[in-house]
């Protein structure tokens, strides 16, 4: 294992210390491993909390701030946060307008957020949960999570009610699909060796974001071919033609340079164009990662005028900022 760390057991806590030092606009609770907007709770605003295992940075902590999340709970690497963390975050950001939990569809995440929501209900807090399951292979929560956090965050910032913000998040989840490919495995610091072995000549199609093997191992192919492998199942799953177009998102898994992501974006845009899908907005970069895994995921989201306006609304977080 070759990593810039001090102690495998301290990786999450030490990275949070760095987040706090680098971003004075954030408040970091080291004890509970929660990253807060410094101005939370924001009076009158529906509050958004998400969280999940660490190792997906910048997700979720990098998306805390104006126009996105109010709090992000960091679990151990690839392990969901625990109910107590989520409950603390929920209590701390509630400004009386209710709290939305954004949960990626993994059994651990779902169960821990469920228990936290049950505890919150006992404390008379109003909590709604939206489970993100955009992966066409296994209905996991992957790339679309970033778009949900951006768009629902903007809806909350506009002053919409808890049920309206939850509806926006559900609409995004219903209209988006993703699929990923891995060129290498990755190494969980506490384990010290790669999660699986992948020869130079092969790739894994249908991966998630936890270094787990995918649905299928295939010989490595040119980017043009890989883009088809990723987009064909997405386009078969949902009709993306018509409407106000789509938001197309090419995401790096952590170990793939931007030059390759842009090359992939070109292939994705070409296929979408040929398929009669109009791209209204795009996002290219590594926003939801699997440690140092090489590879990418493609997310396509059906957008209407409301979603596009929410997408364009100002955002100011560590990893995503525009319009301000």
């Amino acid at each position: 294992m070759k990593k810039l760390i001090n102690d495998p057991a301290g990786v999450v806590a030490e990275a949070l210390r760095g987040m706090a030092a680098a971003h004075p606009g954030l408040r970091v609770d080291q004890q509970n491993k929660v990253i807060y907007r410094a101005d939370a709770p924001v009076a009158g605003k529906v509050a958004l909390v998400s969280g999940g295992g660490s190792g997906h940075e910048p997700l979720h902590g990098g998306f805390v701030g104006l126009g996105m999340l109010d709090a992000a709970c960091a679990g151990e690497v690839f392990t969901s946060p625990v109910p107590d963390q989520i409950l603390q975050a929920t209590k701390a950001i509630d400004a009386g307008a209710g709290v939305l939990h954004i949960v990626k569809n993994y059994s651990g995440d779902v169960m821990n957020f469920e228990m936290a929501a049950e505890f919150a209900a006992e404390s008379a807090l109003e909590v709604r949960s939206v489970v993100i399951d955009d992966d066409v292979v296994g209905r996991r929560g992957v790339g679309l999570t970033v778009l949900v956090e951006k768009i629902a965050g903007a809806a909350a910032e506009q002053g919409r009610s808890l049920s309206e913000v939850a509806d926006v998040a559900r609409k995004v989840n219903a209209g988006g699909r993703s699929m990923g490919v891995a060129l290498t495995s990755c190494t969980v610091p506490a384990v010290g060796r790669p999660t699986f072995e992948l020869p130079e000549t092969d790739m894994e199609i249908g991966i998630g974001i936890h270094g787990e093997p995918g649905r299928q191992r295939l010989p490595l192919a040119p980017a043009k071919q890989v883009a088809e492998y990723l987009l064909d199942p997405i386009l078969a799953d949902l009709d993306f033609t018509g409407g106000d177009g789509v938001i197309a998102f090419v995401n790096g898994m952590g170990g793939t340079p931007l030059i390759e992501l842009y090359l992939m974006y070109h292939e994705v845009a070409t296929i979408l164009g040929k398929s009669g899908v109009r791209i209204a907005r795009s996002l290219v970069g590594s926003y939801i990662t699997s440690l140092e895994m090489a590879g990418c995921s493609v997310t396509v989201l059906r957008a209407d005028d409301d979603l596009l306006k929410l997408w364009d609304a100002p955002v100011h977080t560590a990893a995503l900022r525009w319009g301000r």
Partner: peptide
Amino acid sequence: NTVGGAAGV
């Protein structure tokens, strides 16, 4: 409060 994941719950 220490395990996390599905196994913890």
